[in-house]
């Protein structure tokens, strides 16, 4: 399927609400409601036409206004991939784990939990692995965070 066909197939076959983001990239891009994260992931993972069985990348984003999680699954069967993201509640950033669908999500979610402080419900093994074990200095990748050890860039 080419990107246009892929977009049409997913929007017509997925039961929930989807927002398609127009872009000039080779992959379709969706914004999925937070409550539909797991159903949508399950749909694209299990659907025989899609079979997006491999999570290439998953990252947290802090745009300054909102928290997002971007996922980039791909299919090693059909050789196609897509992007989708969920927007989190800024006051209470929280999303459900998809690590039971894509095993790769396990470490990505740990990374997001560690560096952004998003709460991940249902994750089997939330432990630090990037920061020192005794870290207690907040979440370094959030916008506006200034830690104890950070030396800010001097003004020009």
């Amino acid at each position: 399927m080419n990107p246009a066909e892929l977009t049409a197939y997913i929007t017509s076959n997925f039961s929930g609400q989807l927002e398609t983001v127009e872009n000039d990239q080779a992959e379709p891009y969706f914004i999925v409601p937070l409550s539909d994260l797991v159903p949508f992931s399950k749909f694209i993972h299990d659907d025989p036409q899609l079979e997006l069985n491999y999570l290439m990348n998953m990252a947290g984003v802090d745009t300054g206004e909102q928290f997002e999680v971007v996922l980039n699954p791909c299919s090693l069967v059909n050789m196609q991939r897509l992007f989708f993201k969920v927007v989190l509640d800024r006051g209470d950033p929280k999303f459900d784990t998809v690590s039971n669908l894509w095993a790769a999500a396990n470490w990505y979610e740990r990374e997001i939990w560690e560096l952004y402080g998003f709460e991940i419900t249902g994750h089997p093994n939330l432990k630090r692995f990037l920061l020192p074990d005794d870290w207690d200095d907040g979440f370094p990748l959030r916008k506006g965070w200034v830690g104890k050890n950070v030396i800010p860039l001097p003004e020009k």
Binding site: L131, D137, P140, N149, V150, I151, P152, L153, P154
Partner: peptide, 10 residues
Amino acid sequence: FYYDSYSVLR
């Protein structure tokens, strides 16, 4: 990594 780094020993 001297400036703006949370992780690097100076």
